[in-house]
Computed example of a mutant assay.
Amino acid sequence: MTSTLKLALTGFFVFLLTLSAASTAHEIRPAIIDLTLEEDGAYRIDIQTSVETYLAGIGPEVTDTNDAPQADEYDRYRAMSAQELTPVFKEFVPELINGIRFQADGIDLNLPEPSLALTNEPDLELARDAVITFTGTLPVGSSSLAWQWDEQYGGSALRVTSASGEEIYTEYLQPGTAAGPFDITGAVKQSGFSIFANYIVIGFEHILPKGLDHILFVVGLFLLSSKLKPLLWQVSSFTLAHTVTLALGMLGIVTIPAAVVEPLIALSIVYVCVENLWSRNLSKWRPAVIFGFGLLHGLGFASVLTEIGLSPNHFITGLIGFNVGVELGQLTVIALCFLAVGVWFRNKDWYRSYITNPASIAIALVAGWWVFERTVYGV
Score class of each variant (00 low, 15 high):
236 S>W: 07
58 I>A: 12
319 L>R: 01
149 W>T: 12
136 G>L: 07
358 P>M: 07
341 V>P: 04
154 G>L: 06
288 A>E: 01
4 T>N: 05
47 I>T: 03
104 A>R: 03
50 S>C: 02
238 F>Q: 08
172 Y>K: 05
53 T>I: 12
359 A>R: 01
95 E>L: 10
37 L>G: 05
319 L>T: 11
248 L>M: 13
137 T>Q: 14
158 L>V: 01
144 S>W: 00
81 S>I: 13
293 F>I: 11
255 T>L: 06
339 L>I: 13
292 G>R: 04
223 L>D: 05
107 I>S: 09
228 L>A: 03
114 P>N: 10
183 D>M: 02
355 I>E: 04
332 T>A: 15
134 F>C: 10
320 I>P: 02
172 Y>S: 09
362 A>K: 06
28 I>N: 09
212 L>Q: 11
265 I>Q: 01
168 I>C: 02
333 V>H: 09
255 T>D: 02
259 A>R: 14
144 S>G: 09
237 S>R: 08
76 R>L: 08
309 G>I: 11
10 T>N: 05
84 E>D: 15
233 W>K: 07
372 F>K: 06
234 Q>H: 06
334 I>A: 10
156 S>Y: 07
143 S>N: 11
340 A>W: 08
28 I>V: 15
170 T>I: 11
9 L>Y: 05
350 W>H: 07
116 L>I: 13
294 G>I: 09
73 E>W: 03
250 M>N: 14
120 N>K: 15
348 K>R: 14
68 A>M: 07
86 T>S: 02
45 I>V: 15
95 E>A: 13
89 F>A: 11
378 G>W: 11
280 R>Q: 14
318 G>N: 09
189 K>H: 13
211 G>V: 07
340 A>N: 00
303 S>L: 04
347 N>D: 13
329 G>T: 02
206 H>I: 08
55 L>G: 03
304 V>K: 10
173 L>M: 11
81 S>P: 02
308 I>Q: 04
24 T>L: 14
357 N>F: 12
89 F>Q: 05
59 G>E: 13
14 V>Y: 02
274 V>I: 15
3 S>N: 01
88 V>R: 07
351 Y>T: 05
196 F>K: 03
317 T>E: 06
96 L>Q: 09
136 G>M: 04
326 V>Q: 05
320 I>E: 07
107 I>P: 00
293 F>D: 14
214 H>I: 05
174 Q>V: 03
7 L>W: 14
128 R>S: 10
141 G>E: 14
341 V>M: 12
302 A>G: 06
307 E>W: 04
162 S>E: 12
88 V>S: 01
240 L>E: 04
212 L>K: 12
89 F>T: 12
214 H>L: 03
49 T>S: 08
206 H>T: 10
150 D>K: 10
136 G>K: 00
17 L>F: 13
331 L>Q: 01
101 R>V: 15
379 V>F: 14
181 P>R: 10
94 P>C: 11
305 L>V: 12
94 P>N: 09
140 V>W: 00
192 G>V: 02
143 S>G: 15
120 N>Q: 15
376 V>E: 11
316 I>A: 15
252 G>E: 03
243 T>H: 10
330 Q>F: 05
59 G>L: 08
264 L>H: 02
5 L>H: 07
86 T>G: 00
201 V>E: 01
274 V>Q: 00
95 E>F: 10
108 D>A: 14
346 R>W: 08
182 F>R: 06
150 D>P: 03
285 W>P: 04
